[in-house]
Structures are given as structure tokens and as C-alpha cells.
């Protein structure tokens, strides 16, 4: 039961323990910032040779597809965090 409550609590549906919830929310927020900076770093093709011709994925260079993927993931994570975020009182 406690496991289920914590699971629901983690996705922001039920507030079982406000202190616990705040701690978890802050941890999730930290994870979110980390994920955003990692995805942003991956979106820039610094790990490829400049001027190199790359494989096309459905007509688009792979680095463009990766960048798009990163930005949509950031936007989705951002949306989830907004939906589950609680404004400080």
C-alpha cells in the first residue's frame, strides 16, 4: 500500500506527506535541470567532424534528427514538470 501511495505521490497525483512530496519535487526538478542541460549538449553536433557528410534519415541529416529529438524531449519533460509542479507558498 505504501509502495502504491509513494508511486502515485511520485507522479504528483496524491500528496501523502507534504514534506516528502516537497523533497521529491525538488529532486525531480534537479533531475530535470540535469536532463535539460545534457539534452542541449547532445543537440549540438560537437561530437561530429565539421563539414562531414552524414547519413540521411528520411531525407534529413542525422544530426538534425537528433537535435529535433532532443528539443521535443526537453519540451515534453518541461510540460510534465509544469503539470506536476507546485508553486511555493
Amino acid at each position: 500500500m505504501r509502495f502504491i501511495l509513494h508511486g502515485l505521490d511520485w507522479i504528483g497525483i496524491r500528496i501523502a506527506d507534504k514534506k516528502l512530496q516537497t523533497m521529491k519535487y525538488n529532486n525531480i526538478r534537479r533531475l530535470y535541470y540535469l536532463a535539460v542541460f545534457l539534452l542541449m549538449a547532445v543537440s549540438v553536433p560537437w561530437y561530429r567532424t565539421p563539414g562531414q557528410e552524414t547519413e540521411l534519415i528520411r531525407g534529413f541529416p542525422d544530426w538534425v534528427v537528433i537535435a529535433f529529438g532532443c528539443y521535443f524531449t526537453i519540451a515534453t519533460l518541461n510540460m510534465l514538470l509544469w503539470f506536476f509542479s507546485r508553486t511555493e507558498r
Binding site: Y33, M40, S43, F68, I74, A75, N78
Partner: peptide
Amino acid sequence: WVLCAGLWAASMGSFH
């Protein structure tokens, strides 16, 4: 200029 989508993603995230 795919970075334009990144500008939106970055700016919306910063409001947190």
C-alpha cells in the same frame, strides 16, 4: 537553423 526549436525549448524551461 534547427536550433530555432531549441531556443523555444530552452526559453520555456527557464520559467521554472
